[in-house]
Write a protein that binds this DNA or RNA. Structure first.
Length: 548
RNA sequence: GGCCCCUUCGUCCAGUGGUUAGGACGCGGCCCUUUCACGGCUGAAACACGGGUUCGAAUCCCGUAGGGGUCACCA
């Protein structure tokens, strides 16, 4: 029978494909890796993780990292996902060297890079398999397949389409013709060659040699709609795209024998495999994969909304990949994390638990190392997308905004209170007069609750005498002096030594000013804060509070 | 259930026959201090269990247990 019936879109011989997609001309040792997401409406943090590993492995070796869209399941496909994937990768500095770089636009000589556009290639390969007798059409319906599984469950045998359970494996040509004539839908299946006691070895880059029973299942290669399954597409694409290292989740471990068999049948040398463990999450005692349904932090979008700096997410991921990154970071402050080399064979075999506290800590350090300008730029981008009100305020006077961010950021030990941009509106909102007006109620309440209460005349005096030109030491001396006149001890020690002689100490005085100026007790350095607010604002706020 | 993978402080990672089992996050204490952060010092905290091999085991071997993955015309 003419196998073209089952592969109507086949257009090439294997030889033609070999010529069309020749081995890459790369330096010795160069690795070609890829990221192959399915566009199902979501960009998983695990995808970022895998891409980070893959891209680095490729680039460290002078190789190529490409993006391949695995859109062979049109039922699950969600429009707009490709865009999301492309832009997510781009914003974390993980853009591919080949593949889709913008919606519908791709670069590279090994494409197309969307599997749905590669039908002629897959079908050509399957046609060859059919001709060699390594594949056959299967007309079994979903119901028949289910009945098969039920029977297997009843008899307590291995479930699956294999051996004598593979009902269409040995049908006669006449039976196939009849099914075809009846217009029954069909799939094309692999005619498995795996022996009963045969074993195959997977030389995994991360895990070392792993042994499995050889594949015995007549897996589906071409679905009823003519699309390839993952298994076929993986083998064909990674061969013709000349992938040298397949980096993928360890959920694929069990299907390796299937893939190995296909590579062998085609006569192709399989790539190296590195099966990485997914990021997991603690869930009432046990752990499980970070799931798109239950865990918001599984989505890359979550990190964007929270306003984690891009570098923080990357460095956290780097941390999971190799804990020595931390030591490297300490030894190489200011160096781009791009410089840190990843070694596949050093990766952890067990899955890492997602740790928000650790991410926050990494982020604190990353933000701590940024300049006010860098923070301003990144935070403004975030605010424009996620907090328009704040964006307006923040953008109005860029110089003022940056001065706010620069408080305690210019010395040896920068402030590390910012973890994500999301905090900014509440943390520095009081610097802006319109926002401060909204906080007035809170300020008054806190002011009234002050212990000891602010002495009469204090605010007026500070408002009148404050000189922004004073440097830190002069300011301290001035304010201590001034406070002494109102009964505040110059420091806590003095106060403790003679509590009856004072109403409080310098810290209490600073507290009064903080509450009035910022509507809160915890603010950055008061001296710098007042300088940034400026004489006019300071005086206005203090004077207005005299009547509270 | 079959097959496969994994197992060092709560978490992440070091440690590949001889270490007081190390670092980081988190947590506690102390110090610094105008609050909050920062920083410094310090403390509690782990080799899943049982057998071997060995003068000696977190490290090698065999079991057991626990956790995870996979057995689709989803990837």
């Amino acid at each position: 029978m003419d196998s073209a019936v089952f592969t109507p879109q086949a257009a090439f011989t294997l030889g033609e494909l070999e010529a069309k997609f020749p081995p890459r001309n790369l330096p010795d040792g160069a690795r070609v890796t890829r990221f192959g997401p399915s566009p199902t409406g979501f960009m998983h943090i695990g995808g970022l993780y895998t891409s980070l590993v893959s891209r680095r492995v490729a680039h460290q070796s002078g190789g190529v990292f490409y993006l391949r869209i695995e859109d062979t399941d049109k039922k699950r496909e969600v429009e707009g996902t490709v865009d999301l994937i492309v832009s997510s990768l781009a914003s974390y500095g993980l853009s591919p060297d080949e593949g889709e770089i913008a919606d519908g636009q791709e670069i590279g000589a090994y494409g197309p890079y969307r599997q749905s556009a590669r039908m002629p290639i897959y079908q050509s390969c399957v046609r060859w398999l059919l001709e060699q007798g390594h594949a056959y059409p299967c007309f079994a319906s979903a119901e028949e397949l289910q009945a098969l599984r039920d029977e297997q469950a009843k008899r307590k045998v291995q479930p699956g389409y294999y051996g004598s359970w593979a009902i269409w494996r040995d049908k006669t040509e006449a039976e196939v013709e009849a099914a075809l004539a009846a217009g029954l839908p069909f799939t094309v299946r692999l005619r498995s060659t795996g022996g009963r006691d045969e074993r195959v070895t997977l030389p995994d880059t991360i895990r070392g040699d792993l042994e499995f029973p050889a594949n015995q299942t007549d897996v589906v290669l071409l679905k009823a709609d003519g699309m390839p399954t993952y298994h076929l597409a993986h083998v064909v694409d990674d061969h013709f795209m000349r992938t040298t290292d397949v980096v993928r989740g360890n959920e694929w471990l069990a299907s390796y024998p299937m893939h190995a068999q296909m590579f062998a049948l085609f006569g192709w040398t399989p790539p190296r495999f590195a099966h990485i463990s997914p990021i997991e999450k603690q869930d009432s005692g046990s752990r499980r994969k970070l799931s798109k349904r239950h865990d918001p932090e599984a989505s890359v979008g979550w990190y964007m909304e929270a306003g984690y700096p891009k570098g923080a997410v990357t460095e956290y991921l780097l941390n999971l990949i190799d804990g020595r990154f931390e030591d490297w970071r300490v030894a190489n402050p200011g160096v781009s994390h791009e410089e840190f080399a990843i070694e596949l064979d050093q990766m952890s075999r067990s899955g890492a638990l997602f740790d928000l506290a650790k991410l926050d800590s990494v982020s604190r350090d990353v933000v701590g190392a940024m300049s006010a300008k860098e923070i301003y730029d990144a935070a403004l981008v975030w605010a424009s997308a996620h907090h328009p009100d704040f964006a307006v305020r923040f953008a109005q006077d860029a110089e003022y905004s940056q001065a706010i961010l620069d408080i305690e950021r210019h010395g040896e030990r920068p402030r590390k209170d910012i973890v994500r941009w999301e905090q900014l509106p509440t943390d520095i909102g009081y610097f802006f007069d319109d926002r401060y007006a909204e906080l007035l109620g809170e300020a008054q309440e806190a002011f009234k609750a002050l212990q000891p209460p602010a002495p009469a005349g204090l605010l007026t005096k500070v408002a009148a005498d404050y000189d922004p030109a004073l440097d830190r030491d002069q300011w301290l001396e001035w304010l201590r002096d001034l406070g002494l006149g109102f009964g505040y001890a110059p420091n806590a020690k003095t106060f403790k030594a003679a509590p009856d002689q004072y109403i409080g100490h310098f810290g209490d005085l600073a507290g009064v000013l903080r509450v009035v100026l910022a509507a809160r007790r915890n603010t950055p350095d008061l001296h710098e804060m007042m300088q940034v607010l400026g004489k006019v604002r300071v005086a206005a706020r203090l004077s207005a509070a005299v009547d509270w």
